[in-house]
Design a binder for these strands. Structure first.
Lengths: 228, 228
DNA sequence: GAAGATTATGTCAGTGACTGCCATTCGGCA
DNA sequence: TGCCGAATGGCAGTCACTGACATAATCTTC
């Protein structure tokens, strides 16, 4: 859930006393570790990259690496955590009139757009996240860890939706189900985006998500025996 | 996907030449490993049990353990694999007239019932599977591995449903979505069964699954702003 | 039923993820 | 400047997992 990236690698704001040197240094180290890990994973693969390599690329000890990340998986998934936080934030801001699916769809589009604008490049950029998704998808242990995070995320989304609609998620299954449906649409989009390299880049992904969303109406209600 | 348990620990059938001694021995070792692991996990916890302990409980070398299971997770999840195979098998046999949800619901009930009848006790029994679920739920690495398997399973179910309905899963999202909904209902039931210890044992679980299923109609279509 | 081909098992050495412990150093602050 | 708490490094140790090779058990064939 915690997805920090240094606000900006600049000196403390002249006016208010921002976070101290110690804190800025930590954020910088953390970002550097993520960046190095990402680069190494992409060039050599996840399994072929040792924690020692990552640590020494940033010139810290292995022990320090494990003070920032509980395990090797976490540093890989950290990039995605940023995108997830964006999404949750955008979803929170959607107007109450929208129904859950509308809100989620809008939030996804917005979060990708804003993410693209604010993190053009480097770890945290949309491109990075998508590159990572490829690696995740064919690294069993990473995929497992990713799905666990995704399950957590779904529960957060379900609670959010329940709150929007004024429902108790313990009583009413609908928020849970709709969150699961949404999650599965995202995953299906990821998978087919990974498979077809026709639709490359963020635009392709957004297009795919849109197309899958369009199928949702017919999927959730309707006569199954005849084409939508 | 491979969920074997020895057909019966008896001598080869008098008539036809069944599997040879070598094969029977392997199945016995495999079952013994699962059983020992299960017992140890329940009594000491997953993390506190080393592979060496499991192996020496069955009197084989650690190396041999890893020839049967790719990793420690796998031996824990093996019990669930049996239940999953049962479900898939029952789903395959459901009559074509039923709609997907009806078929899945019936298949789940049948598979639990049959599982209970055929494996009263020991690994592979319903009780074992449910005990395991508790451990899985609060062991992060196991939960992750479990969710990965569940995702695979969902894809299998989606393909099955697509075949039943004569649809192409690449074209039509509905099978994927309905499989995801089903998976999420199961998981929600697991979670609340884990939380409330009121509903204990297999019957409680079946009851919970039924209750969740009943909510599905209203959840999948209908006016969200008013109670079902 | 014995020789020879297969296959399961054991042993051993090695790598790499991860942890606890203690000494050292560095940033925050009086 | 000097003290305190936090961040780091180094190290030893555990444990999951793997490759290589030798041994022993089954299976086959004559």
């Amino acid at each position: 859930m915690a997805a920090q990236l240094p606000p900006a690698a600049t000196a403390p704001a002249a006016g208010g006393t921002g976070p101290g040197l110690r804190e800025r240094k930590k954020q910088r180290t953390r970002a550097a570790l993520i960046e190095a890990a990402h680069r190494l994973f992409l060039s050599q693969g996840f399994a072929q990259t040792t924690v020692d390599e990552i640590a020494s690329a940033v010139d810290v000890s292995q022990r320090t690496f494990f003070r920032y990340f509980a395990n090797k998986d976490e540093v890989a998934l950290a990039v995605l955590a940023i995108a997830e936080d964006y999404f949750i934030d955008r979803l929170r801001r959607r107007p109450a009139e929208e129904n859950p699916l509308q809100a989620m769809r809008a939030a996804i589009v917005e979060s990708w757009r804003d993410l693209g604008a604010e993190h053009r490049t480097g770890p945290g950029s949309v491109t990075s996240a998508l590159e990572l998704l490829q690696i995740i998808e064919d690294t069993p242990t990473l995929l497992a860890a990713h799905l666990r995070r995704a399950a957590e995320q779904e529960r957060v989304v379900a609670r959010l939706i329940a709150a929007r609609e004024g429902l108790d998620p313990a009583e009413d299954l609908r928020p849970t189900v709709i969150a699961a449906v949404f999650g599965s649409v995202l995953r299906a989009a990821h998978l087919s985006w990974n498979a077809d390299q026709e639709e490359s880049g963020p635009e392709g992904m957004i297009a795919l998500i849109g197309r899958y969303f369009d199928q949702l109406g017919p999927a959730l209600a309707g006569d199954w025996r005849h084409p939508a």
